[in-house]
Design a protein around this nucleic acid. Structure first.
Lengths: 243, 243
DNA sequence: GTCTATAGCTGGATAGAC
DNA sequence: GTCTATCCAGCTATAGAC
């Protein structure tokens, strides 16, 4: 069956060339500029040929999303080994923002273009046995749980909710940066770090601070909370139901 | 000059009809679906006529942005009279997010479409004597300063930076909501409130806490934002006693 | 001021020859 | 598998008649 295999390889190869060309176009000119004609030109095939490898333009777009999403996750991976959960989270989200800014068009394609694209990226990651989309979610939530266990986050913090909120924050920073010229006036890193500090505390690891004897009382024992070591009041304080 | 005035009025009226029709199209079908042909159809004029009132499609888009931006600011206005700065900020940002979700296409047009549009909205608000874009910025920053003065925010918090970070957070929530189907899993309000609590503290007013002595200079590194008497024209109700 | 008519372009997608 | 040729649709914008 050597012949069939070779043909298969060649087919795969062309598919790759199509995606390569598409990626280059998107990166250079943005997703709006991606047309079948342009791709065909770039790879020196006729437009009709593309349809033998992809059903339509959307399928190419989704393939690019999947790729880009995997690339993003790869970028984050190295930071997972950081022991301290707060530092780990900070490194992760800094890398996330850096990716978004460095790969504007890719980031935009994945998260800001067509709602079906993100879904596809998540789903196809799932299908690939590579549960990475949801896994990334869990990694953040787990780190938050670690922090909570160490008494460094309010007990009332729901790690699922916080995960989404953190994501929104970082996405917002990237998104505004890409589509809103008046943002930011401060250096981007400053804003990122301010946000991370607000969420996770401005502290470095406080080995000295013993995990606080958390009263299970839940209700705000309006504590003599020393606003310890740069921990923003907002975070250090237990949540009280607001009026 | 009654005749000239009537003609002028009629011209204005048609301009309005064009914008009305455009707005309806954008709201119903999204900005991408806005074409000169479609507008002309909707108002039962020929496409050519549109060019007598607007230079091109972009100018119509920018006009819609300006409108939408003003509408957004109007939505926020009522909350400016809230005395407690934390509560004021929470109300403002909740309203901001609510606007974004309720007027998806408008929000998207202003902040997520073309980078030049936001700029135009800000700028034309400025030209109208109505310094509202920047004013909104200042209102948030001022509220943060109040909080700081009351010792409810860490002294190291740069209110300019926090303003941008808060904006990014809320924008991220809206943006993800609009373009990312997997977000949020938790109810949207929950995420919004979690974010607001994280930034501003879950506390209600603590009258017992003595306002901390305020350092006049702070560490606001960037601009010499003097603007001392610069109370915003349109938005600034008698509120905000700023420093 | 308003219309008709149209130039001129870009695009997705397919039929049918080779 | 690949190409040529082509259909059809949509768009912006303008020229010139009325």
């Amino acid at each position: 069956m050597g012949i069939a295999e070779r043909k298969n390889r060649e087919k795969q190869a062309l598919r790759e060339r199509i995606l390569d060309a598409s990626r280059r176009i998107v990166v250079r000119e943005g997703f709006a500029a991606l047309s079948m004609r342009k791709i065909a030109d770039a790879i020196e095939y006729s437009p009709a040929t593309l349809y033998l490898h992809f059903e339509n333009r959307d399928e190419i777009a989704r393939a690019l999303c999947t790729e880009g999403f995997a690339q993003l996750l790869d970028t984050l991976k190295p930071h997972l080994s950081i022991a301290d959960p707060a530092e780990r989270l900070k490194a992760l989200w800094r890398a996330y923002v850096a990716f978004g800014v460095a790969h504007q068009q890719t980031y935009q394609l994945i998260f800001m273009e067509d709602p079906t694209y993100v879904g596809a990226a998540f789903a196809s990651a799932r299908d690939a046995g590579d549960d990475s989309g949801d896994a990334a979610f869990r990694l953040v939530a787990d780190a938050l749980d670690e922090l909570k266990a160490q008494g460094r986050l309010p007990e009332t913090a729901d790690s699922e909710v916080w995960t989404e909120a953190l994501w929104a924050t970082m996405h917002g920073i990237v998104a505004l940066r890409l589509t809103c010229p008046v943002f930011p006036r401060a250096p981007l890193d400053t804003v990122v770090d301010a946000a991370l500090d607000a969420w996770l505390g401005a502290h470095t690891v406080r080995a000295s601070d013993p995990p606080e004897p958390r009263k299970p009382s839940g209700k705000s024992s309006r504590a003599p909370h020393k606003r310890a070591a740069g921990v923003p009041a907002s975070i250090a304080k237990p949540k009280t139901p607001h009026t």
